[in-house]
Design a protein around this nucleic acid. Sequence first.
DNA 1: GTCTATATGGTGATAGAC
DNA 2: GTCTATCACCATATAGAC
Lengths: 195, 195
Amino acid sequence: MSTQERLIETTRELLWERGYVGTSPKAILQRAGVGQGSMYHHFTGKQDLALAAIRRTGEEMRATVDRLLDADGPAYDRVAAYLLRERDVLRGCPVGRLTMDPDVIADDELHGPVEETIAYVRARLADVVQEGVDSGEFASHLVPREIAAAVVATVQGGYVLARASGGTDAFDAGVRGLLSLLKPSPAPPSPAPTA
Amino acid sequence: MSTQERLIETTRELLWERGYVGTSPKAILQRAGVGQGSMYHHFTGKQDLALAAIRRTGEEMRATVDRLLDADGPAYDRVAAYLLRERDVLRGCPVGRLTMDPDVIADDELHGPVEETIAYVRARLADVVQEGVDSGEFASHLVPREIAAAVVATVQGGYVLARASGGTDAFDAGVRGLLSLLKPSPAPPSPAPTA
DNA sequence: GTCTATATGGTGATAGAC
DNA sequence: GTCTATCACCATATAGAC
């Protein structure tokens, strides 16, 4: 792996662990095993390097969401796949956590990819919910973009609960709670499910 | 207000805005208009001052939750009151945001009041949901502590969505989405609601 | 490309005068 | 109680040798 790659990957790790204000160039260089000169050769500074790292993390997340939601099957199952996917719960969301970073929010460049990534996930989930409403799988009074927001919020907030309590149970509880609310009723005998 | 009070209140503000790693003693002193000596007279250091600030913020939050959930009325209305209460959405949660702070999570003293406060809110909400299940207001298959976790997570995650998008709409959407899922069905004619 | 100085200002804490 | 040194160390960036 090139020096530049190592810098980006190490920055991604540290941004995830400690956020932007909590990550110093020095810490990145030490963990990457790279000298200071290399970083300022490939990037203009901390912000520029963080930008490359955040963009890549955003791309990765969008790809993951695509993979989960592009699957076949009922809308409920795809939403459930998103909610139940394997996660490093106690580490939190590498994109979402940046929203609590004052220097990220204050910087349009850094804020951009964060905003786009979260918006993308919400939009893709809203589409799936819309399909579920259209097919009669979900109640017609449900508003897809509201349900999508609730789904993403449950995940993002689940990380908060998990980290607050020091365990993953709270995350799982929130997800199960939401799924229990979302689950299509046991379906009265048979009003032609494939209609 | 005493110097000590000013320090605590200013620290609460800065922890809310910038988190623990993003807040320096110097910044606190400047905003509070206090010299360095005063801080080290009243507190042993940054951690000690932050602890006082976090404890107070936690107490305040527990009091707010008590006020909202102790009200009379259907469980749904009380949960809705919690979800719909006035909030400074774009500032996020002064307690929840600390869970993303690596130095808070790594420090048992600082972590303590954060954990207790979030656990308290979840427990109080779970009690309300349990009442709703017991009274038949909510479906019997719902698990109170799971619904409570979903409710708190929706709020905590709603802040993330709001800050990511730079507006409060996403928060409101998530809350409305959850409430639409939670809302007791329009109630078939009249199976004695006060039974 | 990568390295090691070097520089300026911030961080977190202590010392001791008033 | 509050203030102003003072301190050792870190943060971020630049300069220039190799």
